[in-house]
């Protein structure tokens, strides 16, 4: 009898570990996709640079959104990642590892990074880059650096289709408005002298659910995010069609790595020139009815420089709590 009991316990533990081993479909790495990309020969980088290190390691980890149709989505019907940010990430990967988008395999790994933790995961080194509808602004530049913008988006208001009361930005005054924790929206609304009752969620589909369920009356964020939500709502939501703000979206990276940033900007220039940028847009956000915008020019701002990185990390960055 005694033996059986131990066997039972052992069985429970074993079956759990065994079941775990059978799981193979969930690596969020690059796979599939049509072969539209051009082949790049394996580039050579100066020793010691981030690019060389990543190439040697054979792995580039990118933080992105997993639940934003159009920009970054993990599709539950096939487990694949799709969206404009994903495409940009793969193209950056090609710039580091060479080959084509299809030959990247597991060299580019995507991790979920919601709005509120993007600075934290870059600084912690959990990811090498963040490509996650990430607006470039001065507050964030105190903590991370940005390559790009790789696209300039604007913020809009999303409401239920039958809503007739919210037509302008000023109409948001006193209304329940949802947006992402750690997003630029609260600052944008304050800048427009709008005093809304804000609900902050970690991801935008949560805002969409809240709007559908009547918890809030409007969702304010980037148009590229909103069109995905409108598309998924089967005519339940609509865009108001105002411009709350301009949002230059960039690639976030660790502060002070100017060589890596210069490389990323060069790579963006290259994919814009080659047409890969446009193709990536058309097969993602473009499918949601957005006209292809003109490609932006990366902003190669003067950085703190690699030499001063050590000094920069020891000084205390100013608290940005009050500004957001």
């Amino acid at each position: 009898m005694r033996r059986h009991r131990w066997l039972a316990v052992a069985f429970v533990v074993l079956s759990m570990t065994a079941a775990a081993c059978g799981d193979s479909d969930d690596d969020s790495t690059v796979g599939g996709g049509q072969s539209t990309a051009t082949t790049v020969s394996k580039p050579a980088f100066a020793a010691g640079t981030t690019m060389a290190n990543l190439q040697a390691k054979g792995k580039l980890v990118i933080g992105t959104k997993f639940n934003q149709l159009g920009s970054g989505l993990k599709n539950p019907t096939n487990g694949q990642l799709e969206g404009f940010d994903i495409e940009i990430g793969k193209l950056i990967g090609v710039g580091i590892f060479g080959g084509t988008v299809d030959s990247l395999g597991s060299k580019v790994e995507f991790k979920e990074a919601v709005s509120a933790v993007r600075e934290a995961v870059i600084q912690s080194g959990d990811v090498d880059l963040v490509i996650a509808t990430y607006t470039i602004n001065t507050a964030r530049k105190t903590q991370v650096d940005f390559a790009g913008p790789y696209i300039v988006d604007g913020q809009d208001i999303m409401v239920k289709t039958d809503n007739t009361t919210i037509k302008t930005i000023a109409d948001l005054n006193g209304k329940k408005v949802c947006t992402g924790e750690g997003s630029t929206t609260p600052a944008n609304l304050t800048a427009k002298q709008v005093n809304a009752d804000l609900t902050l969620f970690k991801t935008y589909p949560e805002c969409a659910e809240a709007l559908r369920q009547g918890r809030v009356e409007a969702v304010v964020t980037d148009r590229g995010i909103l069109v995905g939500l409108v598309d998924a709502s089967s005519r339940g939501f609509k865009l108001v069609g105002v411009n709350v703000s301009e949002e230059p979206l960039g690639i976030g990276l660790k502060k002070g790595d100017d060589a890596f940033r210069a490389f990323l900007n060069d790579r963006l220039d290259a994919i814009i020139a080659s047409g890969e940028w446009k193709a990536a847009y058309e097969k993602t956000l473009g499918k949601l009815g957005l006209p292809t915008p003109t490609a932006p020019k990366p902003d190669r701002y003067a950085g703190t420089g690699t030499a001063t990185t050590l000094a920069a990390t020891t000084t205390v960055p100013p608290s940005t709590t009050t500004t957001r």
Partner: peptide, 11 residues
């Protein structure tokens, strides 16, 4: 997709 999640939970 769910089973993958279940596997990750058990792992």
């Amino acid at each position: 997709f769910y089973l993958g999640g279940l596997g990750n939970t058990l792992k």
